[in-house]
């Protein structure tokens, strides 16, 4: 008899416990490698394996990762690429541990006991190794910021923040569409690369904005598979002409935009003559540190840049 009562008690006990503490639904995610990741509750102690494409989105969603991949300055101090510019957060302004640059310090990750590790497809860190330390989510940033943010919001439960960011961006794109009729305008994005031209199907944040707004592109750009880039001969420069041309320059260098123009001049002296956009003053140099980030902060700045570039000008 006694065992029966005991087992009954044991069976009933969880019901009470459940009543006392509301059960959080476990979160089931399918990541970009097709893996299923199950989290008991929204992740809070997160380790990021990629600064531009994971850490910045997390910060924007209102979750500070406990540790992140980063880069090294010449003086040896670590930084999160583009982050201070877009979010104000960096290793020196927030409590984020630096994990390393090329290879990240897996031992430090283990010691931190994160409840989620987020990595990106192009990172060399083996997913199998990360999985042994904590549940690991793999995102593919080539699928664009909105996709990455949806994935990260689902993992962290930051749906309100996501909704705000998304509606802000929707509004911005709507404004862009209303003001400048993108479907009637052509744009192109490229950068000089040692005697050749580097052209992307869509260059990260600027590419996303231009595609989302519905601009038209030169045939050369549309022939490139989505998410990829090609290096083409300088002879095809006129094929890249458009109403407005964007050239992401190295904004982290002292010489900055001037060096970019000099590089173009070196490939095609007097290149401006051969591009109608340039002759009309619409060859726009944009800072690469902003354009390269797949984040709503960067998208927002890119919308502003595009808007200014197309804004009508009084005679």
């Amino acid at each position: 008899m006694k065992p029966l009562i005991l087992s009954l008690l044991l069976a009933v006990l969880p019901l009470f416990a459940a009543n006392a503490q509301p059960v959080t639904q476990p979160i089931t995610l399918v990541d970009d490698l097709g893996r299923t990741v199950v989290l008991a509750q929204p992740a809070t102690r997160i380790v990021s394996d990629y600064d531009v494409d994971v850490t910045i989105p997390l910060i924007e969603l209102g979750v500070l990762p406990i540790a992140s991949h980063g880069r090294l300055n010449r003086d040896g101090s670590p930084y999160l690429r583009s982050s201070k510019l877009l979010t104000g957060v960096d290793f020196d302004t927030a409590d984020i541990a630096f994990l390393g640059a090329a290879e990240i310090d897996l031992e430090a990750v283990a010691a931190l006991k994160p409840d989620l590790i987020i990595t990106e497809m192009s990172r060399s860190t083996p997913v199998a190794k990360l999985e042994q330390l904590a549940p690991t989510l793999v995102v593919n940033s080539d699928l664009g910021a909105p996709h990455v943010y949806r994935m990260l919001a689902a993992a962290t439960g930051r749906h309100t923040e996501l909704a705000r960011l998304e509606s802000r961006y929707r509004e911005q794109i709507a404004l862009l569409k209303a003001e400048i009729q993108p479907e009637k305008r052509t744009v192109s994005v490229f950068q000089p690369l040692r005697g050749k031209l580097n052209v992307y199907h869509s260059y990260r944040a600027i590419g996303q904005v231009l595609r989302d707004a519905g601009f038209r592109f030169p045939a050369v750009m549309n022939e490139i598979p989505a998410g990829e880039s090609v290096v083409i001969s300088a002879e095809r420069l006129p094929d890249l002409d458009a109403d407005v041309i964007f050239d992401p320059y190295r904004s982290d260098r002292k010489a900055g935009a001037k060096a970019e123009i000099a590089a173009m001049e070196k490939i095609v002296p007097g290149f401006c003559r051969y591009l109608s956009a340039c002759r009309n003053g619409r060859y726009i140099l944009i800072p690469r540190e902003e354009a390269i980030s797949n984040s709503y902060a960067a998208l927002s700045r890119m919308v502003a840049t595009v808007q200014t570039a197309f804004a009508p000008r009084p005679e």
Binding site: A102, L193, R194, G195, V231, A234, I267
Partner: peptide
């Protein structure tokens, strides 16, 4: 080059021998 992405991007074609863009 592994530790310096910038130089890698700058020299990736030159390093194997490339005649594009000679002035």
């Amino acid at each position: 080059l592994i530790l310096d992405e910038d130089t890698l991007e700058q020299l990736r074609f030159w390093l194997v021998g490339d005649s594009a863009g000679v002035s």
